[in-house]
Amino acid sequence: MTRRTIRLAGVAALCGAAATATAAQGSNVTLYGRVVAGVDVQTNVQTTDGGSGTLWRGADNQWGTSMFGLQGTEDLGGGLKGLFHLESGFGAAKGKTNGDALFNRRAYIGLQGGWGKLTMGKNQPIADALWALDPTGQQFIGSATLVRGRNWQGHDNMVAYETPNLGGFSALALTSLGEQPGSASKLRKDALSLTYTAPAFELRAIYDVARDANGKYSDLFNTSKELTLGGTLSIRDFKLFAGYENLSAPDSPAGAPTKANHFWLGANYQLTPALTLIGAFYRVMVNRGGGNANLYMLGANYNLSKRTLLYASVGTVQNSANANFSVEATNNNPAPGRNQLGAYTGIAHSF
């Protein structure tokens, strides 16, 4: 037997022993992910010279985020489990992560038992709670569009507690520490989510606050108070969605908007086992001359298999004279008072 053979045999024996030990401890780790890519177009995008033009580009996260992650649990005995979750979002068109952090979506550890779940680290549970209320599943043309992504915010430095499901009712409470010397409020975020789920319907109430570096609510679409109420109703092949969102930034600079009211209605229709049709309407009204806008969206998802689907979505935003909301949740805005069309199509594969 050669040294190389002995070396490989030793590695195999160690791997086998590690796998046996892992199984004996009742732990498991799952690798998962999704890759999404396609093409995207938006009209009337304002240019730096004050003009406007049509923007063509590769589609990254318009339908949904490309991502990869690891999650695992370990049975600690007595109904108690240890858990962890690491997840990174990226854009397939350029192969870049969504931000500088390696795990830009989730990086947390925790314990779970009959009493509920306690987690610490980075997460985006409030965004996930609102995702369930959006007929598009929070696509770029969806519930985040007319609030400029305010309800997509994640939570760094988080400590969160989630109750077990009690007869259909569950709750989540969290704080996201600001890490500022001498202050417990600067840059801190807090949130509370209440959910009631039944076989045919679901109701949600979500309240979260995000403070600026001075502990104030100074930016309506960034550091503000957010209340969301909504629900879904399933009737055979239809699933109906309704939501209301109120944003408040009482510490905004003089003349800047301090309030926005946002609501939506929509539906999913399972036309065939493979084809789902989507339709939605969104409206936002902003005070202090911020204007208002209506957003209309139609889409379709077609499953080629359990893991691969084709998607297509189209929408238009109708802005009032003072508003410049984009048709997608991006900074590719039209000039104030201009309308905009947008569409994207592509393929998504999950693993």
Rank of each mutant, 00 (worst) to 15 (best):
T2S: 15
T5K: 14
V11Y: 13
A12I: 06
A12H: 07
A18C: 11
A19Y: 08
A21H: 07
A23K: 14
A24F: 00
G26D: 05
N28P: 02
N28Y: 04
N28F: 00
V36Y: 00
A37I: 04
V39S: 14
Q42E: 14
T43E: 09
T43M: 05
Q46Y: 02
G50V: 07
S52D: 13
G53V: 03
L55K: 11
L55C: 09
G64Y: 00
T65L: 05
L70E: 08
L70F: 14
G77L: 06
L83E: 11
L83Y: 05
H85A: 08
L86N: 13
S88Y: 00
G91A: 07
A93N: 15
K94D: 15
T97Q: 08
N98A: 12
N98E: 12
G99N: 12
A101C: 01
L102G: 11
N104C: 10
N104M: 05
N104T: 06
R105Y: 02
R105H: 06
G114A: 13
G116Q: 07
K117M: 12
M120T: 07
Q124S: 11
D128S: 10
L130D: 10
A132S: 13
I141Y: 08
I141L: 06
A144F: 02
W152N: 14
Q153S: 09
N157R: 14
M158D: 14
Y161V: 06
T163D: 10
P164E: 10
G167W: 03
S170V: 00
S170Y: 00
L172H: 08
T175A: 13
S176H: 01
S176G: 07
L177P: 09
E179L: 09
P181D: 09
S193I: 00
S193C: 01
A198P: 08
A198D: 07
K216T: 06
K216Q: 15
F221S: 03
I235P: 04
K239Y: 02
Y244T: 04
Y244R: 09
N246F: 07
D251H: 02
A254F: 03
T258H: 09
N261V: 01
H262D: 07
W264Y: 08
L265D: 13
A274R: 14
L275H: 05
T276V: 11
L277W: 01
L277I: 06
I278C: 10
M285N: 12
G289L: 04
A293K: 07
L295I: 01
M297G: 08
M297H: 10
M297V: 15
N301Y: 02
L304I: 12
L304Q: 09
T308M: 11
L309W: 10
L310W: 11
V314F: 11
T316M: 11
N322T: 13
A323V: 02
S326Q: 05
T330P: 11
N333Y: 01
P334H: 01
G337D: 15
Q340D: 14
L341F: 15
G342S: 07
I347W: 13
A348Y: 08
H349Q: 09
H349G: 06
H349K: 10
S350N: 12
